[in-house]
Design a protein around this nucleic acid. Structure first.
Lengths: 334, 334
DNA sequence: ATGAAAGCGCTAACAG
DNA sequence: CTGTTAGCGCTTTCAT
């Protein structure tokens, strides 16, 4: 109804001071008498005054907003990943009182960078050109979940190599010798890195890498099913499987049970992601937890520090995944 | 590096016209000669000029941003629901060239409404006071996924009563007579409405409502398990179950299989949501599809029309869920 | 400690 | 069809 916007002038009038003074209390400038401050605060509260953000930004010449660019392919949205990222970034923006401008890439319209202090790219997929363009405009960028060495851009990612190594070593520690893996898509960095970590762990223990034990999946449930079928067709069947994702691990367990195997007694399975879906299967999934929420929060904080001129060194941060032991792994039967 | 912001003046200088003319071409005002338009466009492209959104907003006095307020409780984020809403709203904003300001409520800091033309509330839970406050400020609001009659607010929701009725009628059409339901939380509107729809369908067929067949769940997997156990303990067991959510339906199927029942031969199960998880179970889940994406898109469009003064009547829209037949229902064995 | 005044970059009458 | 000019609401020197 009453769309009468109240401005700093109204506040000044009611408080009986100049707009400059009002501006000072809004911005926490100290040189305001206690008395005037109190009057202004009263007026602000009474009038329910909220500064016009556009005017502030224009006057200050800086931008208290961060852009979040998400690739638009449908899959990403159905993943636990996207949610955690959005949640973490949203939370950090809240705390830092930054506007979060959310943008889904369709390849066309890039985010209007004039409107933000910095931008976070939720993935490098589909975004490479846009990242380069944004960088060229001199706007601080942060790539999440990807180690990117070929661009002069800040990044913060989960250490997939280390995580996969930890997972495999856990299986090794349980005395498994015949450990197979169903990989994620080898087109993705995470897929590659998780395979690498698996190999690293085996090498470190001087266990020869058996190509039959490496099934190239693509993160789909279907590929997981095929993977297990292949692995079970081997004369020398593995006793444990490192799956590059929880989703695939869950499918592997389903198929194993269908085939009359007991998990973990006959087959140990470890996943990667710590997707909440892992809680609901017939057997609790042992997996690697990814600090997605923290990664997202850190991304905002670091970016903000850079935008605010408080940080000058590039961010190249790698976060460690953590082992979550539930019920899907045990020592092999002798 | 070169953070030299180029402004409308630079463009005007290069094109050899006034800034007004530049402004005109930016805003697609038609009264610009072809020649000048071309010159300006060249300059814009050459300088890679992007209008300063804050200045535009300040000058225009209107706000081309929409706020999206999501309740902050963790659960919502792990749901298919949140993702679809975000995706739909993001897509619509993209198309309409609106900034999407994403805000997670924590009870404290409300969204600074000075910065947006209108706001969409992803749910009414935890947000009631904020909605009232926003309304009081004269800012158009839109509530999603809730029928709210006690507030003078726009809403757009899925017709849960009708959806539940359709689901139950489908079971009836398959010749089931003994149809039970596991409800969602009866603290929520959706839980209540879905139960209502179930009852409506039965009444319409003159089938007496058997209280034993109504198990009050709460949308959790655990309550679904308990629900099925209860239902199977009955002397006169139901032959079909309408589950108020896919998640619960999936658990019901799992438990049924554990107990040696065949789905759908021994027990038909229909869900609600059309959650992608429904595709992956041992048997494809028959369910009610909710047009979440469309609901979110519509919310933005309608809100935008209201903000732009193109619509004056309140929005009170109910979207129909659609039956998705997969494999979890069949006619009862005689 | 406080206020006057000059912009921030853009749009929108208003003249011409 | 085009340019001049007065703001939009706020911050920020610079005086006082």
């Amino acid at each position: 109804m009453s769309k009468k916007k109240i401005s700093i002038e109204d506040v000044a009038a009611r408080a009986g001071v100049s707009i400059t003074t009002v501006s000072r209390v809004i911005n926490n400038v100290l040189t305001v008498s206690k008395k005037n401050r109190a009057k202004v605060e009263e007026a602000v509260a009474h009038l329910n005054f909220k500064p016009n953000v556009s005017a502030q930004r224009l006057a200050k010449g800086l931008n208290t907003a961060v852009g979040l660019v998400m690739p638009g392919y449908p899959g990403i949205f159905h993943s636990f990943y996207a949610i955690e990222i959005i949640r973490g970034i949203g939370h950090a923006c809240e705390t830092l009182k930054l506007d979060l401008i959310f943008h889904i890439t369709n390849g066309y319209n890039p985010l209007n960078t004039n409107n933000v202090g910095g931008v976070i790219f939720a993935d490098i997929i589909e975004n490479r050109k846009q990242i380069e363009a944004t960088l060229a405009e001199g706007i601080p960028c942060m790539v999440i979940n990807n180690v990117v060495e070929d661009l002069k851009v800040n990044y913060i990612a989960v250490d997939n190599v280390k995580g996969a190594k930890t997972a495999t070593e856990y299986l090794l520690g349980l005395d498994h010798q015949k450990i197979a893996t169903v990989t994620g898509s080898l087109q993705t960095q995470s897929g590659l890195h998780r395979l690498q970590g698996y190999k690293d762990a085996l090498k470190k223990k001087n266990i020869a890498i058996n190509d039959d034990y490496i099934y190239e999946g693509d993160y789909s449930r279907r590929s997981a099913r095929l993977g297990l079928e292949h692995l079970l067709s081997l004369k020398d069947k593995p006793t444990a499987i490192f799956s590059a994702s929880d989703d695939m691990a869950l499918e592997i367990i389903n198929v194993a049970i269908e085939k009359g195997l007991k998990v973990p007694e006959d087959l140990s399975v470890i996943g990667f992601d710590d997707n909440p879906g892992g809680l609901y299967g017939s057997v609790g999934l042992t997996t690697m937890h990814q600090p997605l929420f923290k990664m997202a929060e850190d991304a905002v904080r670091h970016l903000n520090a850079i935008v605010g001129g408080r940080r000058h060194t590039p961010v190249r941060s790698l976060l460690d995944p953590e082992l979550v032991v539930r019920e899907s792994c045990s020592s092999p039967k002798i």
